[in-house]
Design a binder for these strands. Structure first.
Lengths: 109, 109
DNA sequence: TTCTGCCATGTAGGTATTCTACATAGGGGT
DNA sequence: ACCCCTATGTAGAATACCTACATGGCAGAA
């Protein structure tokens, strides 16, 4: 039931990709490109998120004889994971929102 | 000149408080209340931010004979720190912004 | 006066997380 | 033969965080 784990910026970045389209599955290599995180950061995060019950995973089924690339391990948000990720990411965004005044004064984003 | 350091969620929370009013100084105990972080997390962060050149600090000058409380150590954003913090926090916010679609669909925030 | 609580800064030690680098393995191109 | 791309993953060091405690002075209550 979406257990506790630390919502670090890198974890939040991963979740943000999932939340972009909550039904869509993603795989590790995909996420490393989307977030800019190295594989040595990404895969441990996915393992933690799966163990904590935020994500569920399955191996892509491909015909190994005809395969042109290694099989992917697809991850998807669980219902609990979706709810928890949503509120946690929103809370983080809200916290960062305090900075909006200075940001507007400085530059056009 | 605002060296590299990891923009973790706790660091971002601290910076967000400073960015709320970039000229205003803050002290540790103040920030622990504003962010909800324990002192054992806060003071090391302030040390790192100061060493990295994002913040500059000075001790409050109070008459020790009449003092009713310990002296505070005030921190303020340096010009470099302001610019760097601004862009880094904005980048993080942008990254989290991908999640907006799911957030709107789920709940009213 | 002893106890408790508040302010304010900070350290110690263990755990969690991240980073850099490397390992594996098959396909395709030169 | 060699290198690059896809794709997942581990090892070990570095970094950051959390819980708990230390310090010390003042104020108010028991």
């Amino acid at each position: 039931m979406a257990e506790n784990l630390r919502l670090t910026t890198t974890v939040a970045a991963v979740l943000a990709v999932f939340l972009e389209d909550p039904q869509a599955p993603h795989y590790g290599f995909d996420l490393t490109r989307a977030t800019g995180q190295p594989s040595g950061t990404m895969y441990p995060i996915l393992l933690r998120l799966e163990r904590a019950g935020w994500l569920e995973a399955h191996w892509e089924e491909i015909d190994e004889a005809v395969a042109e690339r290694p099989a992917r391990r697809y991850y998807r948000l669980t219902p609990d994971g979706l709810a928890t990720a949503c509120s946690q990411v929103a809370a983080l965004r809200k916290q960062l929102g305090r900075a909006s005044k200075a940001q507007k004064e400085q530059v056009a984003w």
